[in-house]
Design a protein around this nucleic acid. Structure first.
Lengths: 194, 194
DNA sequence: TCCGTAACGTAAACGCTGTTTACAATGTAA
DNA sequence: TTACATTGTAAACAGCGTTTACGTTACGGA
C-alpha cells in the first residue's frame, strides 16, 4: 500500500512538480480517499522525503558501480561528474525533487544516516584517493573535496535551472562539458606514482 | 504604492519565507485589501520576480565596486567569491528568494535584459581578463567561466542549504573557505605579465 | 462461534490559500 | 456638471493540507 502511494506520488511529482500535486490528486490516482494517505505518511512532505531518499539510493548505486569498474580515481571522478550532469539534464523533475524542492528543510539528523550522506562520503573518498596519489599536488584534502563537490553541484544546478541551457540543446554542449570538467581538474596528473 | 507593497513583501518574504507569506498577509501588513495588490502586480510570483531583480541589483553594485577598487582580476575574483559566500551565509532568506524559490520559473526572456545577466557578464569579463593575462595557462575561456561560476554558485548553495554548515559556525570556516577558493583557483599566477 | 480490538478506509469539515468578480468611491479632464 | 479612468473593497470561487468522527473489515482468543 505504502508502495502504491509512493509510486503514484513519484509519477505525479516527476510529471507535474511537487507543488502542483495535491494530496487529493495522489489519492484519486490510486482511487483512495485523501485522508487515507495520512495513515501511511505524516504529511505531504514525508512522501517527498522518502522519494528523495530513493533517488539518492540510485545515485549511490551508480557511484558504487563506478568504484568497481574504474580503478583510477581521477578518471572515476571525471566519469562520475559526467553522469551527475547527465542526470540533472535528462531527469530534471527527479533532480528538482531531490535538490531544489524545499531546500531549507534539509534535515541533517535524517541525512546523517542517509544515502545523501553516503553519496557524499563516496565522493569524498574518491577525491581523497586523488589527493593521496598526488594528483593535485600538495593541497588540503578537505578543501579539495568541498571545492570539487561545489563545482559539480553548482554546474548541475546551473544546467538544471537552464542557465547553461543556451547550449544544452546544441551538440556542442558535450564539448563544453568536457572543457568545464577539464578546467575543474586542471593540472591533475593521472598516474603520478607510475 | 507599488513601493510600499514591495517593501512589505520583502520584509515578510525575508523573515518568513516565500511560501509562508500570503497575499492576505501582505495586504494586512500595509492595511490594504488583498484584491488591491492585483492592481499593481499580476500575481504573487511577480512580486517575487521584482524583488529578486532588486537583489541582483545589489550584487551587481558590489561587483562594479570591486571592478573599480581591485585592478588585479585574479584578486578581484577571489574577493568577489568571498563576498558571494558571505551573502549566502549571512542573508539566507534573501539568497533563498533569489536562487532557490521557484527555480524552474527562471524566465530567460526577462533575464536577458536583467541584472542577473549583467552580473554574469561582469563575472565572465573578470574571468576573461584572467585567462587573457595567462593566469590559468592555455585554457578555453568559456569553459573557465562556466567552471568557476559553477564552483562559486555550488559552494554558495551548499553553504546555504547547510551542507557545509557543520563548520560554518566554527571559526575554522574562514580557513576552509580560503582553502576552497585557493583550490578552485589553484595554479593561477597573479601577475604573469610582470 | 462469538466477541473485543486493532487496522483500514472515508465523508465532511476546518481554516487556510491565490485569485476573480462586481461594485463603490474618488479624482480629473472636458 | 458631466464623463471617465483610477483606486479601493467585500464577497465569493475553487482549491489546498490536514483533522475529526465515524464506519467497516480482519483477526486472535475465549
Amino acid at each position: 500500500m505504502r508502495r502504491r502511494i509512493l509510486d503514484a506520488a513519484k509519477s505525479l511529482f516527476v510529471r507535474k512538480g511537487f507543488d502542483n500535486v495535491s494530496m487529493r490528486g495522489i489519492a484519486t490516482a490510486i482511487e483512495y480517499s485523501p485522508a487515507a494517505l495520512y495513515r501511511y505518511f505524516r504529511n505531504k512532505r514525508e512522501i517527498l522525503t522518502v522519494l528523495r531518499e530513493e533517488g539518492f539510493e540510485r545515485i549511490v548505486e551508480a557511484q558504487r558501480e563506478g568504484e568497481e569498474q574504474i580503478p583510477d580515481p581521477l578518471e572515476r571522478l571525471r566519469e562520475g561528474g559526467r553522469g551527475y550532469i547527465r542526470f540533472a539534464l535528462h531527469e530534471p523533475e527527479y533532480y528538482h525533487l531531490m535538490f531544489c524542492t524545499g531546500c531549507h528543510e534539509v534535515n541533517l539528523e535524517g541525512a546523517c544516516a542517509s544515502n545523501s550522506m553516503e553519496s557524499f562520503n563516496l565522493f569524498g573518498r574518491t577525491v581523497t584517493e586523488c589527493v593521496d596519489a598526488g594528483c593535485f599536488g600538495n593541497v588540503p584534502v578537505e578543501a579539495a573535496i568541498f571545492a570539487l563537490w561545489s563545482a559539480l553541484h553548482g554546474l548541475a544546478n546551473l544546467v538544471h535551472t537552464g542557465r547553461v541551457a543556451i547550449l544544452s540543446a546544441d551538440k556542442d554542449f558535450d564539448r563544453l562539458l568536457e572543457g568545464i570538467l577539464a578546467f575543474s581538474l586542471r593540472g591533475a596528473t593521472p598516474h603520478p606514482a607510475k
